[in-house]
Nucleic acid binder design. Structure first.
Length: 243
DNA sequence: ATGTGTTCCTGTCCGC
DNA sequence: TGCGGACAGGAACACA
């Protein structure tokens, strides 16, 4: 991969689902997924004006990219669930990681009829359907939990058994949750940082995620938030408000 | 075909 | 302190 990156110029930086995509002037696109714990950091002198030393390589630094201007971009990932690949720009949609992805939740093709069709006949819990990147691309555990709480839908409910009106209501709720989270710079549980290095602060706005045993925030609701593991992932929900 | 459980890996935190 | 176990933002894969 190093030979194919050497001398290449980044012409565009994009995102698809949870993948970062850097188009190069070589006709290839660099794909990056941060997984759970991955992080890209910039050090040195991005503008090439001053001279700065780069920090010593840290534990779990896996990929280091040096630019002519003197900037160094480092990919660090303790758990190594992240990924990097280099693919043909023109045929990127056929790449095995991008091929089956569903619509962007903030885009136009993620709409009521799409979600109703995707839920129809599904026997799996709505929680796992919303985490399925083929249904909608880019939702993770936190935002699914939060969206289902706002929609008043239990994560345990079979997707195919939710009425169309309630499924439709999920669409703007998912958009709202994501828009608010982006506005807040994301959720910094541990590793996540904004692009500028600062912590995100949407974790302070969680209604259910990580709040097991705490009181539900719905007015007059006396229930405590529960945690239940569904296909290996924790779901947080209020058994009274979500049905 | 669909749906669920396991797996990859390291770090941190909690109870004993 | 030390040690074991649970758990962590993702997603491919094996298997029923």
């Amino acid at each position: 991969m190093a030979e194919r990156l050497t001398g290449a110029k980044v012409t565009a930086l994009r995102r698809r689902s949870k993948y970062i995509l850097a188009d190069l002037d070589t006709g290839e696109t660099l794909l990056i997924h941060l997984g759970m714990s991955g992080r890209m950091t910039v050090s040195g002198d991005p503008l090439g004006v001053f001279h700065h030393d780069h920090p010593m390589p840290a534990k779990h630094d896996h990929v280091v990219l040096d630019t002519d201007a003197g900037a160094r971009i480092t990919f660090n990932d303790a758990r190594r669930f992240g990924a990097m690949d280099l693919m043909d720009t023109v045929t990127q949609d056929d790449h095995w990681l991008l091929k089956g992805l569903g619509p962007e939740p903030l885009g136009n093709s993620f709409n009521e009829s799409h979600l109703i069709a995707a839920f129809a006949g599904k026997r799996s819990p709505v929680k796992s359907v919303l985490l399925d990147q083929r249904v909608v691309a880019g939702l993770g555990n936190i935002y699914v939990c939060e969206a289902l709480y706002r929609a008043g839908i239990s994560p345990l409910r079979h997707a195919g058994r939710i009425g169309p009106a309630r499924v439709a209501a999920l669409v703007p709720i998912i958009r709202d949750v994501l828009a608010e989270a982006i506005e807040a710079g994301g959720s910094s549980l541990r590793d996540h940082r904004q692009a500028n290095g600062e912590l995100g602060y949407f974790q302070h706005s969680f209604s259910v995620y990580g709040r097991e045993g705490q009181l539900c925030q719905t007015p007059d609701c006396e229930q405590k938030i529960r945690r239940k593991v569904q296909s290996g992932r924790s779901s947080f929900y209020c058994a009274a408000c979500q049905r």
